[in-house]
């Protein structure tokens, strides 16, 4: 009995945090649709997110596409079907790799940045000061970030997909010496519009998820410099885990309907 209570009480904070996060999300959705919308701040956040996340996204997706091309070239050439390398690569990138890896990079760049910024503001009592000056912090700081995450992550995903295809091209054609025309010709053979749209919708959901988690972590940070570090750490871990967990359900929902 002792151990059962112990186990349950270990998971109790988790459920509490989930409930608080849901409440936080609903409050900020309500704040989107009530007047005083800070559109300039939203554009600012979008621009910052694009600029800051672009370099990590390019640097991660190009090697990833190269590795997938390398492995699949080796496996497919066993069957004598090395032309299929690029078809597998583009399907894998559009559906899985680009949304997941771009979201992981957005979580580690923009999400961690958000948590650090909001946490520092909370710890130095700037958020309380905003409330005293009757500026709603939800509308001024949270809503622009949520919308930026929701709209920018899909765009970054498309950029990352093309980077991955380029990385695969560099390895398959320039390094391993397979045929350039076959690579480009087979690129979109197995791809249909549902794959592209599914990837983009996935990325939008992940972006919203990341921003909700990191804004919540930063907004309720406490305990000085160590607390800010803890909030940043938690935001990255929780975002990455929830991306990878939610990804399975989204894959089954979007692509698994005809199996």
């Amino acid at each position: 009995m002792e151990w059962a209570l112990h186990t349950i009480s270990r998971y109790f904070p988790f459920v509490t945090v989930l409930g608080r996060m849901a409440g936080f999300f609903l409050e900020s959705v309500a704040a989107i649709f009530t007047p005083k919308f800070y559109s300039v701040r939203m554009l600012e956040q979008m621009q910052r997110m694009c600029v800051h996340c672009m370099v990590p996204v390019l640097f991660v997706l190009a090697p990833m596409g190269a590795v997938v091309a390398m492995e699949s070239l080796k496996v497919f050439s066993i069957f004598g079907a090395s032309g299929m390398t690029s078809s597998l690569l583009s399907v894998a990138l559009f559906r899985e790799l680009a949304p997941v890896l771009v979201s992981v990079m957005v979580a580690s760049q923009a999400g961690a940045e958000t948590a650090a910024e909001l946490g520092a503001m909370r710890v130095r009592e700037q958020i309380d000061a905003m409330e005293v000056m009757s500026v709603d912090p939800l509308k001024a700081m949270i809503v622009p970030r949520l919308l930026a995450g929701f709209f920018i992550t899909p765009i970054l995903t498309l950029v990352g997909t093309f980077t991955g295809i380029l990385g695969g091209y560099i390895i398959a054609v320039m390094v391993k010496g397979s045929n350039s025309g076959a690579y480009m010709g087979n690129l979109f053979v197995w791809l249909n519009m549902m794959d592209v749209m599914g990837g983009v919708i996935k990325a939008a959901i992940f972006g919203l998820l990341i921003m909700v988690i990191s804004c919540h972590q930063g907004f309720y940070a406490s305990g000085g410099a160590a607390g800010v570090g803890q909030a940043t750490n938690n935001s990255v871990v929780h975002s990455v885990v929830s991306i990878l967990v939610v990804n399975y359900f989204l894959t089954t929902a979007f692509f698994g309907f005809n199996i």
């Binding site: 961690a112 940045e113 650090a116 910024e117 946490g119 520092a120 130095r124 410099a225 570090g229 940043t232």
Partner: peptide, 15 residues
């Protein structure tokens, strides 16, 4: 830097 620096270091580390 202060509390901001800790957050920035964590962010840079993970990226």
């Amino acid at each position: 830097g202060g509390a901001r620096g800790v957050g920035a270091a964590t962010n840079l580390a993970v990226v």
